[in-house]
Amino acid sequence: MVLISGTCLAQELTLTGVTSEHVSPLFLKQSQPVQGMVAAPRGLRMRNTGRALTIGGGALALGGIILMNNADELYYSTTSTQQGTVEEGDPKGALGVLMTITGVGAMVPGIIFWSKGQKKYNRYLEQQRVSLNAGARGLSLRYSF
């Protein structure tokens, strides 16, 4: 058993000759990076979110416009009286108005996110083409085309 800076590590030799480290539950040590977790390039998530908002909002707005076009009235209301329930307007028209407003409300930020995310992603790709790294082993210049 080895004590290293307050962390109790026990190394054991397996049958194949590979050592593995066991860490006490009080101190966590991650020797290997988590598999499958790769950081997304800068701007990629914003661009994809903007695309989804723009396309979804456009479909919603288009559906709302079609419903408004097929409706007799653009409002709908119900009133409960002693004689029963009185309905006025057309529910398709009211639903069409709500869908159009929601669709346009999703498309506006979607377009903004899409354009800003695309700019950030393009800038990231340019940085990946030419890079100058100064490390402990020396200076490196990388250019990819």
Score class of each variant (00 low, 15 high):
residue 96 G to F: 06
residue 24 S to I: 12
residue 76 Y to L: 01
residue 22 H to D: 00
residue 65 I to G: 04
residue 65 I to N: 03
residue 80 S to Y: 13
residue 40 A to D: 08
residue 16 T to V: 07
residue 18 V to G: 06
residue 95 L to D: 06
residue 73 E to V: 02
residue 59 A to D: 03
residue 34 V to D: 11
residue 142 R to V: 14
residue 13 L to C: 00
residue 109 P to M: 04
residue 78 T to H: 04
residue 52 A to S: 09
residue 129 R to H: 08
residue 21 E to W: 15
residue 45 R to P: 04
residue 113 F to E: 03
residue 16 T to A: 15
residue 126 E to M: 07
residue 41 P to A: 14
residue 11 Q to R: 05
residue 41 P to N: 10
residue 59 A to P: 00
residue 48 N to C: 00
residue 124 Y to A: 05
residue 34 V to Y: 13
residue 45 R to K: 07
residue 112 I to E: 04
residue 87 E to D: 02
residue 61 A to G: 12
residue 115 S to R: 12
residue 65 I to D: 02
residue 122 N to R: 14
residue 16 T to P: 01
residue 61 A to E: 08
residue 8 C to Q: 08
residue 21 E to S: 08
residue 65 I to T: 11
residue 118 Q to L: 03
residue 22 H to M: 04
residue 77 S to E: 08
residue 138 G to H: 12
residue 9 L to A: 04
residue 113 F to P: 02
residue 10 A to Q: 10
residue 138 G to S: 11
residue 71 A to C: 09
residue 17 G to V: 08
residue 103 G to C: 10
residue 43 G to K: 06
residue 105 G to K: 03
residue 57 G to S: 08
residue 77 S to Y: 03
residue 78 T to F: 05
residue 141 L to F: 15
residue 43 G to E: 02
residue 21 E to I: 09
residue 134 A to D: 02
residue 1 M to R: 06
residue 18 V to N: 13
residue 92 K to G: 02
residue 139 L to M: 12
residue 136 A to K: 14
residue 126 E to Q: 11
residue 47 R to T: 15
residue 105 G to L: 07
residue 94 A to N: 07
residue 51 R to N: 08
residue 145 F to M: 09
residue 19 T to H: 11
residue 11 Q to I: 08
residue 122 N to S: 10
residue 56 G to F: 12
residue 88 E to Q: 13
residue 84 G to N: 07
residue 132 L to Q: 01
residue 68 M to R: 14
residue 48 N to T: 05
residue 46 M to G: 09
residue 39 A to H: 06
residue 58 G to Q: 07
residue 13 L to E: 09
residue 62 L to D: 02
residue 123 R to Q: 13
residue 55 I to F: 14
residue 78 T to P: 01
residue 22 H to L: 11
residue 102 T to R: 04
residue 124 Y to S: 03
residue 70 N to S: 13
residue 97 V to M: 10
residue 39 A to D: 10
residue 25 P to W: 12
residue 55 I to R: 10
residue 2 V to G: 00
residue 138 G to P: 11
residue 135 G to T: 13
residue 44 L to W: 09
residue 100 T to E: 03
residue 59 A to Q: 09
residue 16 T to I: 03
residue 107 M to H: 02
residue 93 G to D: 03
residue 20 S to V: 10
residue 79 T to C: 01
residue 48 N to W: 01
residue 116 K to P: 00
residue 137 R to N: 15
residue 102 T to Y: 06
residue 105 G to H: 04
residue 62 L to W: 11
residue 120 K to T: 01
residue 88 E to P: 00
residue 142 R to P: 00
residue 10 A to M: 07
residue 13 L to D: 01
residue 105 G to F: 04
residue 15 L to T: 11
residue 83 Q to I: 11
residue 50 G to P: 03
residue 53 L to D: 01
residue 23 V to D: 10
residue 102 T to I: 07
residue 20 S to D: 08
residue 119 K to N: 06
residue 61 A to Y: 07
residue 26 L to Y: 09
residue 8 C to F: 13
residue 34 V to M: 13
residue 56 G to C: 09
residue 111 I to W: 06
residue 124 Y to I: 00
residue 96 G to S: 05
residue 61 A to D: 08
residue 104 V to C: 07
residue 68 M to Q: 15
residue 60 L to N: 05
residue 124 Y to M: 06
residue 93 G to C: 06
residue 28 L to W: 09
